[in-house]
Simulated assay, not measured.
Amino acid sequence: MMGDTPDPVRARLLKAALDCFLADEYHKVTTRLIAERADANVSMIWYYFGNKEGLYEEMIRDTLSPLLDVLDGQMLSSVEGFEEFFRLYYDTMSKRPEFPKLILKVLALNQGPGQRFIQQLLERGRTRGARKVADLKTHGQIAPAVDPDILRMAFVSLAMTPMLLKDIFEEQMSRPMDAAFLESLSTFNGRLFTAGLAPATTE
């Protein structure tokens, strides 16, 4: 990052890259197209990101960072924070409904660049998440036997699946997965986690 003030050209390039890469296959998206969409010169892509792949990776980091930053913050200082975490995830992905599909394509189908980069981001999330689980155990918030990898997999399953299958779910339910629906889903999934992670009470 260049200082604390967001650079408007850099921000526009990231937004344009997100729009372009979500709309089309990686190899079909040109730097010229991104620059035109951002109302910027192609040379600015080289200046900020080095090349097209660098811009692609920064676009993914920029989108996922708010979610990974939670693992360093106070949101998950208690299990009640999982509801807020689900809410943040659904809100982030609702604004970019194609993004989870892009991540899945890169990881599962190895389409486009960035597989190693995304895996590094997810591994960082895994490490931070394990540390957060250890903290919650230390403070008696969750059961000592909880496996951090199983917890992470359960969260990812509940978070990603509604976004990946959004069109199918909406068709089956004959109603949109709008903000009100996702708010209810966040609350429900948060309660599932709160109940499922609670230490056993001894009577």
Rank of each mutant, 00 (worst) to 15 (best):
M1F: 07
M2S: 15
G3E: 09
G3D: 04
D4I: 15
R10D: 06
L13V: 03
L14D: 05
C20N: 09
F21D: 01
A23M: 02
K28G: 12
T30D: 07
A35N: 03
A35W: 00
R37H: 08
N41K: 13
V42Y: 12
F49H: 00
L55R: 00
Y56C: 06
M59N: 10
R61E: 03
T63S: 13
T63N: 10
S65K: 11
D69G: 06
D72H: 14
D72M: 09
Q74M: 03
M75I: 09
S77E: 14
S78Y: 02
V79Q: 11
V79G: 08
E80R: 07
F82C: 03
Y90P: 08
Y90A: 13
T92P: 04
M93W: 11
S94Y: 10
R96A: 00
P97A: 10
P100Q: 05
K101E: 13
K101W: 03
L102G: 04
I103P: 12
I103A: 07
K105Q: 15
V106S: 05
V106M: 12
L107K: 05
L107P: 06
A108C: 15
L109W: 11
N110E: 14
G112R: 01
Q115C: 12
I118Q: 01
E123A: 14
R124I: 14
R124N: 14
R124H: 10
R124S: 10
G125A: 05
R126W: 10
A130I: 11
L136G: 05
G140Y: 09
Q141T: 05
V146M: 01
V146I: 15
V146P: 09
D149P: 07
D149Y: 11
D149Q: 12
I150D: 13
M153Q: 15
M153N: 15
A154Y: 01
T161C: 06
P162L: 00
P162F: 02
P162D: 02
M163R: 01
M163F: 01
L164Q: 02
L165M: 10
L165D: 08
F169G: 09
E170K: 00
E171H: 01
E171G: 13
E171T: 15
E171V: 07
S174T: 13
R175D: 03
M177C: 12
A180E: 14
L182T: 06
E183W: 05
S184A: 08
L185P: 00
T187Y: 12
R191V: 03
L192E: 03
T194S: 08
A195M: 13
L197R: 04
A198K: 06
E203H: 12
